[in-house]
Design a protein around this nucleic acid. Sequence first.
DNA 1: GTCAATATTTTTGTATACAATAATAGATTT
DNA 2: AAATCTATTATTGTATACAAAAATATTGAC
Lengths: 221, 221
Amino acid sequence: MSSRRADSVREALEQMIVTGDLVNGERLDETSLSEQFGCSRTPLREAFQSLAASGLLELVPHRGAFVRHPDLGEMIEMFEVMAELEAFCGRLAARRVTTQDLADLCKTVTACEDAAARNDSDRYYAENEKFHHLLYKASGNGFLADQAKQLHRRLKPFRRLQLRVRGRLQQSLSEHRIILNALEQGSEDDVAAALRTHVAVQGGKFNDLMASYKNFHLTGT
Amino acid sequence: MSSRRADSVREALEQMIVTGDLVNGERLDETSLSEQFGCSRTPLREAFQSLAASGLLELVPHRGAFVRHPDLGEMIEMFEVMAELEAFCGRLAARRVTTQDLADLCKTVTACEDAAARNDSDRYYAENEKFHHLLYKASGNGFLADQAKQLHRRLKPFRRLQLRVRGRLQQSLSEHRIILNALEQGSEDDVAAALRTHVAVQGGKFNDLMASYKNFHLTGT
DNA sequence: GTCAATATTTTTGTATACAATAATAGATTT
DNA sequence: AAATCTATTATTGTATACAAAAATATTGAC
């Protein structure tokens, strides 16, 4: 854990943005925020830089930092890329996965099912994230894993919305099993296909996403 | 063009890093660099943040900013991802490309061939970059296009190395034609396959890359 | 009353000053 | 002489002060 003030400010701001606490287009005032965080403008501005790099803020020279929430179209674009990245991870993993990886993945899938059965949503999200991170790692491509992790993180708030939809959770769980089975059999195409349907926003998922998006506290761009 | 000092410093530093002017692992001293650039540490540190976000620097708390060149393994990983991203761009483009896009692409391919024939390497690189950027745009997925552009930019210095290899340039040119043809015919699979072989580091390309990598002024990690 | 030009204020960008942490060198002990 | 602890130095992190740019308000002309 870094004791840099700038880092904790970054995290706090990120939280405020992804939870919708800060609405789209809002300008972040340096002075008032620095008062709120009890620090000077310097660490705040460092946090701005970092957030802008991950696309959560837009820095306009001499005008300030503006909150940038993806609109529905961008969100779909991001899911489209995420699906492809995960499918590629899966394809590589099908070739390179170790028995240890498989054991870890299996354990996590079970933990996920268990958490869902107990309605322990926090644990469900944690285990679900672990499952995906393990998959990325199993690809054997560290750079790919990093990229996937980054995007996965960025899509976190929206995935949460999707899973509120009735029946989506059970479906998601069974998809985990399908992915795992395909991995064990080492069939690249099956793994890739399973992951595409697991992640992609298509068919009914599109309508679900649109509905939940509207319920989210985002102002349209 | 932004008149922010921090931005121009960022660009200058990036150039120094990718050209190998700054070797791997080197620590960037804030005071001496700020003297060199004739500015204070503040804009310099902003540039550091930005460069760290794109992976060119590693920021270690209370210890400084360290130049981070990818080693051969990471480079291959990045090319592996680049190939897949481009293939996906191509796949989408095959479905969504407009006649205008095709015309622009065709013009750029011709310009590329022309530049190569005249041994105008600067223009060749410019037109080649344009070709790829047009392809990303033709995917109709703005987020994907951004991601692809970012990675393409990061791989720029290494691509330059690869093209020094005898015969590689002519091959690259003919691959452009193949890609363009496949796009015109709208066959997703052909476009994707053509782009994978165009970008991926495989077969003979691997040895070429390894040889040129060693010639590069990088210290091993 | 509306528009335009100018003055004022506000806000961002940069420089500098200070504080905190890590690296280094030197002294002390075994 | 080697190792360890301490004092010193150097370097990063943060706060504040100043400069430059943009936004806003005010004044004047039509």
